[in-house]
């Protein structure tokens, strides 16, 4: 392999510097600040902080709903990621097969992606409204009296549906481009060797999509964990009550609505560690099985 050479030894560092600066300012510094404030209780107006050791952590874990919120978050992240990946892939495969009018299908399917999470939440609120929601009327036909904001699981299901719906187009776009980058020669060869379309998909197409899937899996988990809180806030109408919420929403709620900065920081550090572990696991275990070439 040819070794890349820079004429000036400082040039690579100079080229890296802007990116490093961004990482330092927007990631490392806030993370360090969060860790620091998780050990303090702080008065919101003047920032007079009292060192309290691990109290913020123990208080967070002792709250009776922390465990329930953690379980719901795990379920929520799993379901939203898997469902939106599966549906996105299914739609991409179908759209890839369409020969006429493919671009209009694609545009229609991608449309939803342009919707901001809170707007998606607002649409969800209208669809699932207790009194006038069309989806509530629809489910009532099957004898399911859905009550958003009153019944824990009804609300949970509605939040999962809206969050999944919002993420499908994103997965669709990446899967479609992944599918279209599979060389025709490979597809044709497979067609000669194997008549079963299903089998061709699982043995040829899907493994070739593995890098895309892996990348999307990580992004979907991040989405479900962190980006959905706008949707959730809208769906629970700013009053979570007995409704299921995710850990990030709790961080937001305690920190930004309740002004409990220390408690909120401790919860976000816990999340940071969780995501760190999750990412290591993903790269160690799953990425080994992904073939990029």
């Amino acid at each position: 392999m040819k070794k890349a050479q820079f004429s000036n030894p400082w040039l690579p560092y100079a080229l890296l510097a802007p990116q490093m600066l961004i990482i330092a300012i927007f990631f490392l510094w806030p993370a360090a600040e969060a860790i620091r404030s998780s050990f303090y209780l702080e008065d919101p107006f003047f920032g007079n902080a009292t060192f309290v050791g691990l109290q913020n952590y123990t208080d967070a874990f002792r709250a009776s709903d922390y465990q329930r919120t953690a379980w719901f978050t795990a379920l929520f992240v799993t379901l939203v990621s898997l469902l939106s990946l599966a549906i996105g892939l299914m739609l991409a495969v179908s759209a890839d097969r369409v020969l006429r009018g493919q671009s209009s299908y694609k545009t229609l399917l991608m449309w939803v992606y342009a919707i901001a999470p809170p707007v998606a939440g607002l649409i969800g609120v209208m669809l699932f409204d207790q009194h006038i929601g069309p989806l509530v009327d629809f489910f009532a036909l099957f004898g399911w009296e859905m009550r958003l904001g009153v019944n824990y699981w009804d609300t949970g299901i509605a939040i999962i549906i809206v969050s999944t719906w919002k993420q499908i187009p994103y997965n669709f776009i990446f899967f479609l481009s992944g599918l279209q980058s599979i060389p025709n020669s490979v597809k044709e060869a497979a067609r000669i060797d194997c008549r079963s379309e299903r089998r061709r998909f699982w043995t040829i197409t899907f493994p070739l999509l593995a890098p895309t899937s892996f990348f999307l899996l990580i992004l979907n988990i991040t989405y479900a964990m962190f980006e959905t809180f706008g949707t959730i806030d809208q769906m629970v109408k700013d009053q979570p009550g007995n409704s299921p919420v995710t850990l990030v929403y709790k961080v937001y709620r305690d920190g930004f609505r309740g002004n409990d900065l220390g408690g909120s920081a401790a919860q976000s550090v816990v999340l940071m560690v969780l995501v760190l572990i999750l990412t290591i696991v993903q790269f160690r275990l799953i990425e080994r099985r992904v073939h990029y070439n």
Partner: peptide
């Protein structure tokens, strides 16, 4: 103090009473 959170706790527990949880 931290009354916004205390109200959250109340709303949650009341919701659970009314839901029979």
């Amino acid at each position: 103090g931290f009354y916004v959170q205390i109200r959250d706790v109340m709303n949650r527990e009341y919701g659970r009473i009314f839901a029979g949880e």
